[in-house]
């Protein structure tokens, strides 16, 4: 059981990475990764929102939707829960910790339309995870996202001063870098 959970953790962080293998969360990935500080802020915010949203949606699905035979309402429920949690988190940050709000509050509304969050909620259900697996997956996936986002922002800061062909400047060369990162990470497949 512990071995299974550790495998799931390593898989969700490195081997089945949300950005590089599952192609999720690319819009903020391209947008927020120009500076290391904003990447770090976004990463922490995403971890927090996904953990909260994953647990709440899992609970809601199994305790409310399944007993009432309302499984078809999963999509609408999840997106509303995610959006509400983002609002709640922003309010909480505004009131309790201005310093935290300053560093990552601006990215919170962006997370509502982040594919990773909705994907984690949906996969928790469709893969039929029990609570332990759900917790590991819900914590591992955003950690993988944050890790790759941070590494990517470090590379992109260097790219700004590199000599890139005119038509590749900006996003295209960043995407090629992402592809090379995907190739590098796929080499880690031998870990398990």
């Amino acid at each position: 059981m512990i071995g299974e959970l550790i495998t799931l953790l390593i898989t969700s962080v490195l081997l089945n990475n949300a950005v590089l293998n599952q192609f999720l969360g690319l819009c903020p990935f391209m947008g927020v990764s120009r500076k290391k500080s904003s990447a770090l802020g976004m990463g922490v915010a995403v971890v927090f929102v996904i953990v909260a949203a994953g647990i709440v949606t899992y609970g809601l699905y199994h305790l409310v939707l399944v007993p009432l035979n309302l499984e078809f309402m999963d999509l609408v429920t999840f997106i509303l829960v995610i959006a509400s949690l983002v609002q709640l988190t922003e309010m909480f940050l505004k009131k309790s910790s201005p310093a935290l709000y300053k560093s990552l509050g601006v990215y919170l509304p962006l997370i509502t339309t982040n594919c990773v969050v909705l994907n984690v909620c949906l996969v928790n259900i469709s893969n039929g995870y029990d609570i332990a697996h759900m917790l590991v997956y819900t914590i591992g996936t955003p950690l993988g996202f944050a890790l790759v986002l941070y590494i990517f922002s470090c590379i992109r800061e260097r790219l700004e001063v590199a000599d890139v062909p005119q038509c590749f400047k900006g996003n295209p060369i960043a995407l090629i870098v992402a592809g090379l990162m995907a190739m590098a990470f796929s080499g880690l497949a031998g870990i398990i």
């Binding site: 590749f168 400047k169 295209p172 995407l175 592809g179």
Partner: peptide
């Protein structure tokens, strides 16, 4: 594979630019 996806996209986007 993901590498090919990123590369193709980047080249097409660069082409449009």
């Amino acid at each position: 594979s993901p590498l090919g996806a990123f590369m193709t996209f980047a080249c097409l986007a660069a082409g449009l630019t």
